[in-house]
Nucleic acid binder design. Structure first.
Lengths: 165, 165
DNA sequence: AGCAGGCACTTGACAGAGCAACTATTGCCG
DNA sequence: CGGCAATAGTTGCTCTGTCAAGTGCCTGCT
């Protein structure tokens, strides 16, 4: 009598989203171990990366929030912590006294330089290296399609724009 | 003089992982709105799904932890909350008095039945429906490859095994 | 049998993140 | 110019989840 319900539970779309979730979270778990070694959290790593790639090695708090998965108050707190550990510092925005910049410090840049080589190796080993080149290209294409639909903001501004060289 | 560092920051592998992250988190954000409407969190939804799909509509706490992103203490707390709201209940394991089962209740099953149709629509709209069939197949293939490498446990036992019907 | 070690689960203390409320600026509109 | 809505950031409260320690139960070894 429950066949309707049962059928829904076996929908292939659920398998599809499960696969995406497991691949993503599984990969993140692999990466986490290395972050731990370097006393960085995933969020901190992302903050450092975003800052390092931005002009002037700085970003307004709000923009940083927009580029990460954090709310603005989340950014306030991460930057608090990272400022305490010397990886970033705040700087006043000369043109708008409400705003402030988060700026990556020399220590922050060094920390990234320490972590990145191992990080890239892990990505190679558990992600991009798992697939032949053309299949990887295809995968990234598909992901980009989904990303653009689901998160249109990310398409503008970020490294993505620099991509079609 | 910093060219070494700069080069690392532009590595295409970083773009690749960024794409995966943005696609995944973006999709999850789209789904979150619907969960809210039904007073369910993402984790609660996953717990209900796992239980609903398991034989006897039940799972030992530890197994539930293994199938989700939660630690065992995390599972204890989610099940606490869900038991309070009547979606699941605990049952003693007859063969091992250390273990207990989380069992989905009728209310829990109903809740899932309410949420699933809309959930599947959203998946259609923002994920599987974005890609032509063969490209989707290819995507799932690639994701499965990565998932199997990165999270070998998930390959056994779960819905994945039931897949090749 | 009896105990040593391991396992399943729970609990206490704590960290990270979000929302909503608050402060300080800014800039628009009369 | 004066006031008011909107914006940038921070802070208080709360929720969720982890880790480490604790409890009770099981199992293998002697």
């Amino acid at each position: 009598m429950n066949t309707d319900r049962e059928d829904l539970l076996d929908d292939p779309r659920l398998t599809a989203v499960g696969l995406l979730a497991e691949a993503y979270t599984g990969l993140m778990n692999r990466l986490a171990a290395q972050f731990d070694e370097h006393r960085l959290s995933q969020v901190e790593f992302e903050v450092l990366m975003r800052l390092a790639r931005s002009p002037g090695k700085r970003l307004r708090m709000t923009d940083l929030a927009g580029q990460t998965t954090l709310s603005t108050s989340g950014v306030t707190r991460v930057v608090d912590r990272m400022e305490r550990s010397g990886l970033v510092c705040r700087e006043a925005c000369p043109s708008d006294r409400r705003s402030s910049y988060a700026v990556i410090t020399e220590a922050g840049s060094q920390r990234i330089a320490e972590v990145l080589p191992g990080h890239l190796e892990l990505l190679q080993k558990w992600y991009v290296g798992m697939l032949p080149t053309d299949q990887l290209t295809q995968l990234l294409d598909s992901l980009r399609t989904i990303r653009d639909a689901v998160n249109p903001c990310a398409a503008a501004g970020s490294a993505e724009t620099a991509q079609p060289a």
